[in-house]
Design a protein around this nucleic acid. Structure first.
Length: 404
RNA sequence: GGAGGGGUGGCCGAGCGGUCAAUGGCAGCAGACUGUAAAUCUGCCGGGUUUUCCCUACGUUGGUUCAAAUCCAACCCCCUCCA
């Protein structure tokens, strides 16, 4: 499908579109300036992760094409819990945790979006502003009557739970009602006419569109992004230590850069389109590289993606460290570093630096010939090390011991 | 409220008195081969201890037993059907 609006053309060309509620209408609307669209984010953790990056990039693209993006913090809905894609209800968070998560998550948006009061400046909203003070009876009468339980039961988020004999509590069942209401509220407050999100949000989005039409006569739209998997079919964004966090406090710049540097060959072009602003001709050139040369494309991807999320300095420092560490066998300053006093058992040092999860694992790795100190293989389980030293576990994981 | 089924390591899923730190699969880590890739093969994969030892763990708490993930009791939670 070809679009006349720049926004949709770009989204289509770069692979962001999974489903649209009304492609022609959205295209027409997007062709005019000032399209207001939103994406909602749960505040279940102190940081968003790579899985959210698609949605964030959608908002960024919208702003690049003259639209007005709204990042909706789920301060209210997080207290309820989205059942989509989950087998069991998750732990409900207390207010203090939600507030802390929100403060932390906000920071990352400032890197991707420009906030302000101008026509295409981004807005950050929080649905706690309207959900916290709802009056139950009033809400049921004004909005609850527009929801068909029959229909809700048929939605994937609910149906899958029921089919698999998994529990679904009433509070979770209400999640989509509240999310639908968010859409209506954002339409009222900011003239927002489109909600975007991952493909698992389709049901929640269309419910909101229906509700908007029923209670406000508004014409609303929805757009979902595909679930991004790695070329090998696995879910994208998992590493040894869990999710790839966007916040530096949760994941150091070096690890963030390394994540992109290590993507599968087959994913390089796709990821450049989705997760960087690199122009198409340059992407074409890079993804055409073959053999060992594809590594240049991966470095370009790592630099561009890291620059966006962590800043140009973080990207440059990581690249320099990578070169020093891998190409020259030395050590770059962006490697994780730990201060120690005097000599200590190598086994303890491996645990301290996080290269091994336990002393037992450290001993096993020594026996497996996986440990190096300053590039020299060590297998002695009772060896000592003293700073300064560079510890390596395998070829990729390194840490520095410094005198302290 | 009644009847039945079920809760095992990150996940799935065996085990159903000792030989169980618990089969197998997935995920993960390391080694070989490479390009900090993929695929493949090999090893590892609760914690501690210089290792035929100790601790923790099979929903929770007690009990039976020389010995329990396995038997008994109570309780908690989930699912199904009935009321």
């Amino acid at each position: 499908m070809t679009y006349k609006s720049e926004y949709l053309s770009t989204l289509e060309a770069r692979g962001y579109i999974h489903q649209l509620t009304d492609a022609d209408a959205i295209d027409t609307r997007a062709a005019k300036p000032g399209l207001v669209a939103y994406v909602g984010f749960d505040l279940t953790g102190p940081s968003l992760h790579i899985g959210h990056l698609m949605s964030i990039m959608m908002l960024r693209r919208l702003q690049q094409h003259g639209g007005k993006p709204i990042a909706l913090m789920g301060g209210g809905t997080t207290k309820v819990g989205d059942p989509s894609g989950k087998d069991t209800q998750r732990q409900l968070l207390d207010q203090a945790t939600i507030d802390a998560n929100k403060a932390s998550i906000k920071r990352v948006f400032e890197r991707f979006l420009t906030f302000g009061d101008g026509p295409s400046d981004a807005i950050m909203a929080d649905n706690a502003d309207w959900l916290d003070h709802l009056n139950y009876i009033e809400f049921l009468r004004d909005y609850g009557r527009h929801f068909s339980v029959n229909r809700m039961l048929s939605m994937d988020s609910v149906k899958l739970r029921l089919e698999r004999d998994q529990p679904l509590s009433f509070i979770e069942f209400n999640y989509m009602v509240l999310q639908s209401y968010d859409f209506v509220e954002l339409n009222r407050r900011y003239g927002c006419v489109m909600q975007m999100g991952g493909s698992d949000q389709w049901g929640n989005i269309t419910q909101g569109i229906d509700l908007g039409r029923r209670v406000a006569g508004a014409e609303l739209y929805g757009l979902t992004t595909p679930l991004i998997t790695n070329a090998d079919g696995s879910k994208m964004g998992k590493t040894a230590n869990g999710a790839v966090w966007l916040n530096r406090e949760q994941l150091p710049d070096w690890d963030y850069w390394q994540f992109w540097r290590n993507v599968d060959d087959r994913d390089v072009g796709r990821f450049l389109r989705l997760f960087t602003d690199m122009p198409e001709p340059e992407i074409r050139r890079l993804e055409a590289l073959e053999g060992a040369e594809i590594n240049d494309a991966k470095i370009a991807l790592a630099n561009a993606a890291t620059t966006l999320c962590r800043g140009a300095e973080a990207a440059a420092a990581s690249e320099a460290t990578a070169r020093a560490t891998f190409a020259e066998g030395g050590a770059g300053e962006a490697l994780p570093s730990f201060a120690v006093a005097g000599a200590l058992p190598l086994v303890d040092a491996l645990v301290l630096t996080g290269l091994a999860a336990s002393k037992g694992e450290a001993r096993r790795k020594l026996a497996e010939n996986a440990v190096k100190v300053d590039g020299e293989g060590v297998t002695d389980p009772v060896a000592l090390v003293s700073a300064p030293a560079r510890l390596s576990l395998g070829k990729k994981r390194h840490a520095l011991l410094t005198q302290g």
